[in-house]
Amino acid sequence: MTRSTPPRTYATRGARDGHGIYGAIFTYNHADWYVRKVLDQANAYKAVQQSTP
């Protein structure tokens, strides 16, 4: 049995090129709080990455 990682799963469910991310994550887990938590964490990673020289 092959397990997909969440990012791969999101991509196959519509989150390609930054579009449809909320819907893809929601398809993976039908909880709004979970989707918001994942997106908040992604934004935090992005902010750190952008501030690192």
Results as ranks from 00 to 15, higher is better:
residue 29 N to E: 09
residue 19 H to W: 02
residue 13 R to G: 04
residue 24 A to D: 04
residue 16 R to E: 03
residue 25 I to Y: 02
residue 41 Q to I: 09
residue 43 N to M: 11
residue 23 G to C: 01
residue 38 V to R: 07
residue 38 V to M: 07
residue 8 R to V: 12
residue 26 F to W: 07
residue 45 Y to E: 15
residue 16 R to C: 00
residue 43 N to W: 09
residue 9 T to I: 01
residue 17 D to T: 03
residue 42 A to T: 04
residue 21 I to H: 04
residue 39 L to E: 06
residue 22 Y to E: 03
residue 40 D to R: 14
residue 34 Y to S: 08
residue 7 P to M: 09
residue 41 Q to M: 13
residue 25 I to W: 02
residue 45 Y to M: 11
residue 17 D to C: 03
residue 31 A to G: 04
residue 11 A to N: 05
residue 6 P to L: 13
residue 5 T to K: 15
residue 5 T to M: 14
residue 49 Q to G: 08
residue 12 T to F: 11
residue 18 G to L: 02
residue 16 R to G: 01
residue 1 M to G: 09
residue 41 Q to G: 12
residue 8 R to N: 13
residue 45 Y to R: 15
residue 33 W to Q: 12
residue 10 Y to A: 15
residue 41 Q to K: 15
residue 30 H to L: 03
residue 29 N to T: 04
residue 18 G to M: 01
residue 13 R to S: 10
residue 28 Y to A: 15
residue 50 Q to Y: 03
residue 17 D to A: 12
residue 52 T to R: 12
residue 8 R to A: 14
residue 31 A to R: 14
residue 50 Q to A: 14
residue 47 A to G: 06
residue 17 D to N: 12
residue 44 A to Q: 14
residue 39 L to N: 01
residue 46 K to T: 10
residue 51 S to F: 00
residue 8 R to Q: 13
residue 6 P to A: 12
residue 19 H to L: 08
residue 15 A to N: 02
residue 45 Y to H: 14
residue 26 F to S: 05
residue 29 N to W: 07
residue 52 T to D: 06
residue 34 Y to H: 14
residue 4 S to K: 15
residue 48 V to T: 13
residue 10 Y to S: 07
residue 4 S to I: 07
residue 28 Y to W: 13
residue 32 D to C: 06
residue 7 P to G: 11
residue 16 R to M: 01
residue 10 Y to C: 07
residue 49 Q to F: 05
residue 43 N to F: 07
residue 37 K to C: 05
residue 9 T to R: 13
